[in-house]
Design a binder for these strands. Structure first.
Length: 261
DNA sequence: ATGTCACTTTACAAGTGA
């Protein structure tokens, strides 16, 4: 089983690259964030032509999440109970047999002094409460997407410069830790304990070339899935301007491989 | 540390969110 998560920063702008990714990787699941499309504008036909089903919690001009899959899901839920910002489409969950797949786009928070920072913490608390209420850590659950939090100081280009700032503050990292304490494993860290693997680079200032990135796109899996996870890699090439048709997203896809049972 | 991108609109430039 292969699962990919990608913040596409507009699915309309990234459709050619998204279809190329499906062709290239042949994933079983592709979780998208920042689709920025209403469901009525979602490119279902192109995705079906590529051999995939799609479900979306759509919104424009911001947010929007989706899950593409080979098979049709048994059930789908959008949003989650207790979400403090109900009018923003940031979470979709789908079940396929005994597997639950969740695509999540965590609140950015902007800055510690911005009101959206507190909203981010409340949002993460509510997300965790929902997960603990609705799921079993002994089951097969994966939540992946743009968490807008670096798990620790290996996951940012300059810890001295950025420590305490938004994405890297202790309260944000505590919320992420709570998800790991519940039973999720940061699948990338199973096989790689080194610093410097990133999934996002600012469009500005040549950040990609200067290696000024963050690892904020995560794939978290419950222990039964972690035990089957053989590899997690970042498709850094996809972030390059020349890698495909049209411009790149500022995020790279993250790809997890699992042994079949 | 932002010379970018995507998107929007009392729309062909300027604001917004990231």
């Amino acid at each position: 089983m292969r699962l990919v998560t990608w913040n596409v920063n507009s699915l309309r702008a990234r459709l050619p690259r998204t279809l190329a990714l499906l062709e290239r990787e042949q994933p079983d699941f592709l979780l998208l964030q920042e689709t920025k499309l209403l469901e009525s504008d979602f490119p279902f036909l192109d995705i079906q032509a590529a051999g995939y089903q799609a479900v979306t919690h759509g919104q424009a001009p911001f947010n929007g999440v989706a899950i593409l899959s080979r098979s049709e899901p048994d059930s789908v839920t959008t949003g989650f109970p207790g979400d403090p910002i109900l009018d923003e489409a940031r979470v979709i969950a789908a079940t396929y047999g005994d597997l639950t797949v969740i695509s999540a786009y965590v609140v950015n928070g902007r800055d510690l002094s911005d009101p959206m920072y507190e909203v981010k913490l409340q949002w993460l608390d509510a997300l965790q409460a929902w997960i603990a209420d609705a799921f079993d850590p002994a089951g097969n659950v994966v939540i992946a997407g743009d968490f807008n939090v670096t798990p620790d100081d290996r996951d940012l280009y300059d810890a001295v410069l950025l420590t305490g700032q938004v994405h890297h503050s202790e309260p944000e990292r505590e919320r992420l830790s709570a998800m790991l304490d519940w039973g999720f494993v940061d699948l990338f860290r199973i096989h790689d304990d080194q610093p410097g693997t990133f999934t996002w680079w600012d469009y500005r200032g040549g950040a990609l070339h200067r290696k000024l990135g963050l690892r904020i796109d995560l794939i978290l899996g419950t222990r039964p899935l972690a035990e089957r996870c053989t590899e997690v890699r970042v498709d850094r090439n996809e972030r390059r301007p020349t890698a495909g048709e049209g411009k790149p997203s500022d995020h790279a896809p993250v790809i997890a491989e699992f042994t079949d049972r």
